[in-house]
Computed example of a mutant assay.
Amino acid sequence: MLVQLSVGWCSSLENITFQSGLFTLQEFNYEGCFKLCEIQGLFKLVPIAKLDEADLGHMQWTKAYQDHKVDLVGDEIIKGRTFNTQMLYEYGIRSTFLQGVTDQSMATHEYTSTSSNYLSFHVPLHPKKQRIQGLYVTVIYRSLGEDRNIESLPVFAKISNRSKGVTWVYNPVVYCKPRVDEDAIWLSYWPIGNTLDAGDEVHVDILVHEGTISTSGYGASLVYMDAGEAEKEKEKSEMMKSEEVIGGDLSLFQVKGGFYLCRRDFYRPMIPAWFFGDNIEITDSRRWRTHNNSYRDHFEGFNNRRNPNRHKIGITLGVSFISNDETSKILKAVSSVESVETVSIHKEIGRLFVCGRFNPSTVVKCMREFKKMVQVLEFEVHKSGSTLFTFHR
């Protein structure tokens, strides 16, 4: 069983698949994979532009925003990249995030709430020839101010069937960083129809770090299917029994009172009581999550001060120098990146050399506005004067 994998800085890698459908990795590094969009058993990102109306269901109206830019944060997968509106597939849940939407009336729902706390409704009676397939949820939220740490703060969706005592708490691998004074919208589809019966009380909530994000509206709609569709759905669910998705095998994500669909270690050693009603030991949710790196980062910083040459990085950029003015702009932009120590330029060979202990993706991100003139060709990582590895594009 594979438990450790490193595919860092594979710039052409788009998909990772495994022989087994179960995601077994305990340590996984995919930093600097700027085209990666799918990891089997973990998540998949697909541009809305590539999906048809049948794929989108109740989210069909989002096609009007398929070319909008969206500021995704939360994971290594988004660093150094720009995205148009995407569909995120994870745990069987489909999510899309929108920015700059002025006509929010397009997201119409059966049940709505302008409360900043939650949405609550009771499942109605429905024809015997129909059954509930799932639940569409919309949440409108915005930033409370310029918080530089918002990119590393978690956002959770919480759906509870209070009548049956079951709760799903879900942390998406990526989410939209809201701009100040502008609403962002999170739309998601939850295939939980087999757990909802007429009369059940359902609560929908979004849980965020206090003081960073506020919610201003919730919407939810039940999705029904007829008898023929139900039979097909039953066959599909049988095929998914061994997958770690809603309707499949979520036993390793199960905690007292529900399912904690999160692979990050945000709250070591305790899942907060406001998720499930009781404090839960993090070990009760046995599925792998990334480790809390705060102590490691502190130790790395100490070592860097003791040994300034430790883990230095050199990046070579191929540059098309158009004018002295553009050259100055590029030099200024690269020099402003945190922990960049030296920047040198060689016009005769069209090269720009950058050295320091910076994160390579921050330099790539910095160069976005110059993408027509700049291309990353290679980089080297040095430790105490020796080369650990060299990357060639």
Rank of each mutant, 00 (worst) to 15 (best):
T195P: 00
S105W: 06
V354I: 15
I282T: 09
L125I: 05
H382C: 05
S120I: 01
K177W: 03
S339Y: 14
Q375P: 04
K256Q: 12
L196I: 03
S323E: 09
E146R: 09
D200P: 01
V340S: 08
G100H: 02
I206A: 02
T62G: 04
P191T: 03
K232P: 02
I213N: 04
L5E: 10
K177N: 11
W9V: 06
L72M: 10
C176L: 01
V173D: 03
F302W: 15
R289K: 13
E53L: 11
N15K: 15
N293L: 10
N84K: 13
M1D: 08
Q66P: 10
L135I: 02
F28W: 02
V340Q: 12
Q19S: 13
E76R: 07
S113W: 06
R368T: 07
V173W: 06
V363E: 07
R368N: 10
I39M: 02
N149A: 01
W186L: 03
I16M: 13
Q86W: 05
L25I: 05
V204S: 06
S251M: 04
N292L: 11
A227F: 09
E235Q: 15
F302S: 11
Q99Y: 00
V101N: 02
T167H: 07
P172V: 01
D52E: 04
Y189P: 00
E38I: 01
V166M: 07
I315E: 14
S113A: 08
G41Q: 09
F370H: 07
G41F: 09
P172W: 05
F28I: 05
T82M: 03
D75K: 09
K234C: 09
Q133S: 07
S214P: 03
N307W: 14
Q19Y: 12
E146A: 07
N359S: 12
N304D: 14
K44R: 14
D103P: 00
L5R: 13
C37N: 09
L36S: 11
K256W: 09
F299N: 08
N309T: 14
